[in-house]
Simulated assay, not measured.
Amino acid sequence: MLVKKCDKCQRFGSVPHVPAEPLSLSPIVSPWPFAQWGLDLIGPMPEGKGQVKYVVVAVDYFTKWVEAKALATITAARIEDFV
């Protein structure tokens, strides 16, 4: 619990510059946007239009930008085309 002092101490006391909770054990650090991506394959899922049943997903660690594409089959050429 963070509130354990009187109103006056809370308003005019020094502000601690530490996180309220400990940071995760393995933080994701990226120095600039689009420097580091995470790739993941999802599936098989129920078949959709065009017989797609897999999804390839890419996430940028800095901006949390997400790109996804549905695939009918997983091949190196299709993954390379996606990237």
Results as ranks from 00 to 15, higher is better:
F12Q: 03
V3F: 11
Q10Y: 09
T63K: 00
D7W: 07
P22E: 15
K53P: 01
G13T: 03
K8D: 13
G50H: 02
M1K: 14
I79L: 14
L41F: 13
K8H: 13
P44W: 01
K64V: 02
A58M: 13
E80G: 12
V66A: 05
A70T: 11
E21H: 12
Y61T: 00
S30R: 01
S24V: 14
I74E: 01
I79F: 04
V18S: 01
C9E: 10
G38L: 09
P27E: 02
I42K: 05
G13D: 01
K53Y: 05
K5W: 11
Q51Y: 08
F34L: 07
E67N: 06
A70V: 05
I42H: 08
V29C: 10
Q36E: 15
W37E: 07
P16G: 01
D81G: 10
F82S: 06
S14G: 11
V52F: 08
Q36C: 13
C9I: 01
D7L: 10
E80V: 13
V29F: 13
M1G: 12
W65Y: 15
L2E: 10
P33L: 01
L25I: 11
Y61N: 05
A20M: 11
Y54Q: 05
G50E: 04
A68S: 12
P22W: 08
V83Q: 10
I79G: 03
G43R: 05
E47M: 10
V59Y: 01
C6A: 12
F82I: 08
K4A: 14
K53S: 10
P22M: 10
P31V: 03
A76N: 10
L41P: 08
V18M: 02
G13L: 00
C6K: 11
V57Q: 04
L2V: 13
A35Q: 12
E21R: 14
I79P: 02
K53R: 13
D81P: 00
I28Y: 09
V52G: 04
D40W: 00
E21F: 12
P19I: 00
D40E: 15
V15G: 00
V29P: 02
W32Y: 15
D60T: 03
A20W: 08
Q51M: 11
V66S: 03
K53W: 03
S14I: 09
G48A: 14
Y61I: 05
S26N: 15
A70D: 00
D60W: 00
V55P: 02
P16H: 00
M1Q: 11
T63R: 04
T73S: 11
Y54S: 00
A77Q: 15
A77H: 12
P22D: 13
I79C: 11
C6M: 09
P46H: 04
A35P: 04
E47H: 01
V66T: 12
